[in-house]
């Protein structure tokens, strides 16, 4: 802005500056590719506006309304939020979701990091290992979940139970037991998603300068010390970011428990998104569904902000 005003002033010392000023700005904007920028921007604006921002805005409004989608909706203040908070299942669903997230962090976070570090050390088979790790990602989620549901067949002839029997163990109830259901789901989710995360870590690892490793090797550092003192510090920003994404993603887990257990046994795998789904599509209560969605979004935003603030020093 400063440069624009300076140029305008110098070129029109005495005349009516405003119109010429504007023309100058517009002309400069056009010359600098403004129109093409706008042409590229409009589809994005339309797509995000219509399919993302507008629905979000509608959700905000809907969370304050009671509607049957036929008659005029009625504003009910915070009634939908009150009803959501009074739902006896909310506490259980919240804990289940947090439990899934914790398990996913414990099981699902280190696996792709370790895999990526391991694959980065490979020379000839790196590509094959990467492809093999990525294969689960290209399988449609419902298909892979149904596949694992078969693996978890509680009958003695189920695949995992058959394998367990080779070692004289089992049969295990897997998904049928309240204690083992959620960890079983997390293992499946980790299998399905670790390939994608590992590829990102691998890309980060490839950008680490080779001289660092060469220097460490000259100093006599083994693979563990190299990984600890070079690799992890070098990819810490990616790790912190992936951890945040993983946390946000796992807090919204839906497909796996829905298909595998339907929330059972005894609501031990009902998650917040399943509750939102039930409100909307089983009970037809869009007010409650959007209210809980909003609560979840706000909580995730706050947690993300705290996380970013807490890890800012380390990531820098």
């Amino acid at each position: 802005m400063t440069s624009t005003s300076e140029v305008s002033t110098s070129s029109t010392p005495t005349g009516p500056s405003v119109p010429r000023d504007t023309t100058g700005r517009v002309g400069r904007w056009v010359r600098r590719g403004g129109i093409s920028t706008l042409i590229f921007f409009i589809p994005v604006l339309f797509t995000y506006g219509y399919f993302a921002w507008w629905p979000i805005l509608r959700s905000l409004v809907l969370s304050l309304q009671k509607t049957n989608l036929v008659t005029e909706p009625k504003f009910v203040g915070l009634d939908n939020f009150t009803r959501v908070l009074a739902d006896p299942l909310l506490g259980q669903a919240t804990w289940n979701t947090v439990w899934f997230t914790i398990l996913a962090m414990v099981i699902g976070f280190p696996v792709p990091v370790m895999f990526a570090v391991f694959v980065a050390e490979l020379r000839r088979t790196r590509q094959i290992a990467s492809v093999l790790a990525y294969i689960p990602v290209i399988i449609p989620p419902v298909v892979s979940v149904l596949l694992w549901k078969e693996f978890y067949n509680p009958e003695p002839h189920g695949i995992f139970n058959t394998i367990a029997s080779w070692f004289g163990a089992g049969p295990f109830p897997w998904l049928q037991d309240g204690n083992s259901a959620m960890p079983s789901i997390v293992v499946q989710a980790t299998w399905a998603g670790f390939g994608q995360t590992a590829i990102i870590y691998l890309a980060a690892l490839m950008s680490i300068r080779a001289e660092l490793y060469e220097a460490a090797e000259i100093d006599g550092a083994g693979i563990v010390r190299r990984a600890w003192h070079i690799t992890l510090p070098q990819i810490r920003f990616v790790m912190l970011f992936m951890l945040l994404l993983q946390m946000i993603g796992t807090m919204q887990v839906f497909t796996e428990p829905t298909v595998m257990t339907g929330g059972g046994p005894e609501n031990k795998t009902v998650t917040l998104l399943m509750l939102i789904y039930r409100y909307a599509f089983i009970q037809g209560d869009y007010g409650k569904a959007t209210a809980l969605s909003l609560i979840l979004a706000v909580v995730l935003s706050i947690v993300s902000a705290i996380y970013l603030a807490a890890t800012r020093k380390w990531s820098n």
Binding site: P173, Q176, D177, G263, G264, P265, E266, N267, I282
Partner: peptide
Amino acid sequence: GQELYASLDPVVQAVLT
């Protein structure tokens, strides 16, 4: 009705598990 059924699912599951 659907909320009632939803509340009974875990009851049945509890008796069976």
